[in-house]
Design a protein around this nucleic acid. Structure first.
Lengths: 212, 212
DNA sequence: CAAAAATATCACCGGGCGGTGACTTTTTCT
DNA sequence: AGAAAAAGTCACCGCCCGGTGATATTTTTG
């Protein structure tokens, strides 16, 4: 990279031994790792700095403290989330509530299953809401809600169906199952370890939403 | 009370200024309060002793530390839970899956809604499992599972219904909604503050399980 | 090259935590 | 009554936390 710059003849950019953006990224990565592993328990100035291999002072300088760092991570997560949501939102005009909500439910399920950080943020905001959890969850929740209403706007609701309540139930179940699976490997006596287990869940979910 | 004892002529039981069991109960109550309010965040030796108005040493002496205290509280909670579960388990032989699971779902929903401690224990075990959370959740989970299988044994399952998966979904949803309601007052855009809100949830839940 | 600014590190503070030993006061036993 | 045991209090320890000022090192600028 630097070779390119000098070759072009720009103001030389010597391979800096001190690179702020790289450092900042290291810190962000360390914080994300900790968050995935231990949640907000280990999400502290000392712990993050230790894992990033730098002094905690840098976190204050680069991000103006933990809250700033949380904001950065929150928006990063939200961006990744937005991208993922797009991938399973475009189906043709749904014909029924089941048609509409089934891919939504399955998509969310897999999204939550595969994203440990979102699991931790969700779980911690339920167990121990704080400034930090709220900062992180805010951007994410905003995008998810926007996405949902955008989907909802596309279809007409059947008469007599309380779509808001039904969705809250479905989404709640999906979140709970995903979180419980990584925490215990099971939920309410149902093992949630193998792919076969999850296929059962998917089938049951489909059954629920289609028969509604 | 003491008057009665002396009147009868028993070995006099002077109104003790130091009463171990009363003290112990004070400590347990204090711990439960803290648990309801702050979860396992504030569930520490110092904090509990402060709230109970006594020295933390007593917690070590009476309960052999935090873990012992957690065990006592866990079994207390489990006992209360067992009693409550009995109250809505006895319906006549159910004729369908919906018949069987509807009162179960609604009962669990109201039980979780009204029991802050169980909410906190559940939420914390998902967010930050530890020795303490596990100790507390163990007795409770054991009784709940026993109760569920006892119910399950009473009915024959319709063919093609994955009862285990369906139940896991329903129970997960119920738990998540209750916890989310006390934490935010809403879930997935659905307000969960007023009784009317919860009636919507109950109706939607009934709709789900009946149509399954 | 030297001065200035950015970058990074270190040492230290107060405070809360869990945990423990030594102590005083009360109750019970003989 | 006096001794032993139980109940309760106090002071202290080491540890890790978040936070901050002073300092060392590197990079950029003039």
């Amino acid at each position: 990279m630097e070779d390119l710059a000098t070759a072009i003849g720009q103001t030389e950019v010597p391979a800096r031994r001190r690179d702020r953006v790289a450092r900042a990224q290291t810190i962000i990565s360390a914080a994300k790792e900790i968050l995935s592993e231990s949640g907000f328990d280990g999400f502290g100035i000392n712990s993050i700095a230790r894992r990033a291999g730098c002094d905690k002072q840098l976190i204050y300088r680069y991000f103006e403290g933990l809250e700033g760092l949380a904001e950065v991570i929150g928006t990063e997560i939200a961006d990744e989330l937005s991208a993922e949501l797009e991938t399973f939102s475009r189906k043709e005009a749904p014909k029924s509530y089941g048609d509409w909500v089934e891919p939504l439910a399955i998509g969310l399920l897999n999204l939550f299953r595969s994203n440990l950080i979102i699991q931790k943020i969700t779980a911690w905001e339920l167990a121990s809401p704080s400034r930090l959890t709220r900062i992180m969850a805010e951007a994410r929740a905003k995008r998810m809600n926007a996405w949902m209403v955008s989907l909802r706007g596309e279809m007409k609701h059947p008469e007599g169906l309380d779509v808001g309540a039904l969705n809250a139930i479905i989404i709640g179940a999906v979140q709970h199952l995903a979180i419980s699976a990584t925490a215990f490997g099971s939920q309410a006596g149902l093992s949630l370890a193998t792919d076969a287990d999850w296929l059962r869940v998917e089938a049951a979910l489909r059954h629920f939403v289609r028969s509604a």
